[in-house]
Design a protein around this nucleic acid. Structure first.
Length: 440
RNA sequence: GGCCCCAUCGUCUAUCGGUUAGGACACGAGCUUUUCAUGCUUGGUAGAGGAGUUCGACUCUCCUUGGGGCUGCCA
């Protein structure tokens, strides 16, 4: 157990995006690694833009990723009284003053400003960025209470960090400039200054930082697209940190054991969907067979197939074929539909390429006749049969039309395994139908 | 404009003064698979530019260039 306390402090003004959630991941890992506490604070002081929906979405995303927090959620708006008391303290000690100002949108009113030192340098040692220094004169006084009397981010953030006894502040790079200001507040209050670690931005494919407006970067969207939380977690972790060796796919335990803030990179990292997709495939392969089977059954149920559609051996056989070929859980629907429904859709491209060819009809009709005579309907015997037809010249001319005829697609599990799973009756019916309606 | 930060393959990165600059993703080729996919082998591509320091710089210093952040009664 250590005294370390960190917090993830998002403002619920939009859906939580990947840059944001990576900060949560790093905080969480740092806390778990050091045996400290990981706190969640909702910074909802922007009353106009904060929404309960955004808070709900935030909770869901954190739970999905397995980011559990140690104490009750801290809502910043619940601490307003304290914020204002501290402001009075600052006013009394001469660290703050009131002044009439006109805002950008033309409203005039009295705001409370924090008075910055006029000389000297403000410095701190950032755990990821190293030594940081700035001349006090380069920083302007800044507002801490709005003309409507509500506290502003800077004061609320610092007071809450003091109240929550936060020891390490791990947050986005966009806060570095604020840090110089916040340090001055801590000092004016005679409070200990926490340690800081600023995380670089994650940039999109255009090289631009993800922002709250970047819809595509919403964490929930990855969930909807069939990404596994473990894969997204692992990928995001690797975007700016590595264990020091060539390992990339890590268990949560390994991550916790190996994570060190000191090793986090200073440079911005570009988000690469292709590598995330690869990582997702890696995690799908690692799903225990039983768990994968229940996901397949789940998807099958949605397609109208009950659990006794196959016996357990049949399900296992199907899953063994499907699992290594699955990159996204969402793909299960399309890869499974031909097994459970007869009115699946045909991929027009596959149909054009494999069925709308001169002579295919004859091949299919011939196959119907030959398959009808097969008594032992198993993958090996079917393969032997087609192999015999091809006379060693490649099974392509037979295999491709069969695949499209029975599944509607150009890809899928091994063809003969597919036919075995489908059964003789369905296979024959589909081949006949394709010969009658699509093949030339 | 001012202040701050950053800079290795297309991308994520290893390297903490001496390496044929390594790995992963992606891409190309080949093998296996006479289908789909997996798997295996293999190839190419990198230290922004310029000065210094040093016997020796990707690594240290400075300048230039490029990128980013901040410069709100947003957070």
């Amino acid at each position: 157990m250590s005294d370390i306390r960190v917090r993830f402090a998002p403002s619920p003004t939009g859906k939580v995006h990947i840059g944001n959630i990576r900060a949560a991941i790093y905080n969480w890992l740092f806390a778990r690694h050091t045996g400290g506490k990981f706190l969640l604070r909702v910074e909802d002081t922007d009353l106009e833009r904060s929404t309960p929906e955004a808070i709900q979405v935030l909770f869901e995303c954190m739970e999905w990723l397995g980011l559990d927090y140690d104490e009750e959620v801290f809502y910043q708006t619940k601490n307003v009284k304290r914020h204002l008391e501290v402001v009075d303290q600052l006013l009394a000690s001469g660290h703050a003053y009131k002044v009439e100002k006109t805002s950008r949108d033309g409203k005039t009113g009295v705001v409370t400003m924090f008075k910055m030192p006029k000389e000297g340098t403000i410095e701190f040692d950032d755990i990821v960025k190293g030594h940081m220094a700035k001349k006090a004169e380069d920083i302007q006084d800044f507002a801490i209470v709005r003309s409507d009397g509500s506290p502003i981010f800077h004061i609320a953030n610092v007071v809450d960090d003091i109240d929550q006894k936060v020891t390490h502040i791990i947050r986005g790079d966009d806060h570095v400039e604020n840090t110089f200001k916040h340090i001055c507040i801590f000092k004016a209050l005679g409070a200990p200054v926490p340690q800081y670690g600023h995380l670089s931005m994650i940039v999109n494919q255009q090289g631009k930082p993800y922002s709250k407006r970047d819809g595509a970067a919403f964490v929930g969207e990855y969930r909807e697209q069939g990404y596994l939380p473990e894969a997204l977690f692992n990928y995001l972790l690797l975007l700016g940190w590595n264990p020091g060796d060539d390992r990339e796919v890590l268990t949560r335990e390994e991550m916790i054991k190996l994570f060190e803030l000191e090793k986090v990179h200073v440079t911005a990292a570009m988000f690469d969907p292709k590598k995330l997709a690869w990582m997702n495939g890696e995690y799908i392969k690692k799903i225990p067979a039983e768990a994968f089977k229940s996901k397949v059954k789940e998807a099958a149920a949605k397609l109208g197939a009950s659990a006794d559609f196959y016996d357990e051996a049949g399900w296992d056989y199907l899953c063994g074929q499907i699992q290594p070929r699955t990159k996204f859980l969402n793909d299960l629907d399309t890869s499974l539909v031909c097994f459970f429904k007869d009115d699946f859709e045909f991929d027009p491209k596959a149909v054009d390429k494999r069925l709308k060819k001169e002579g295919v009809k004859d091949i299919l009709v011939d196959l119907v006749a030959r398959f009808s005579a097969v008594s032992e309907w198993t993958a090996p015997t079917l393969e032997e049969l087609v192999k015999g037809l091809s006379q060693g010249n490649g099974m392509g001319p037979w295999v491709h039309p069969i695949r499209v005829a029975v599944s509607g697609r150009g890809e899928g599990i091994g063809l003969f395994e597919m036919l075995q799973l489908l059964g003789k009756e369905k296979t024959l019916a589909r081949l006949q139908k394709a010969a009658d309606t699509m093949a030339l």
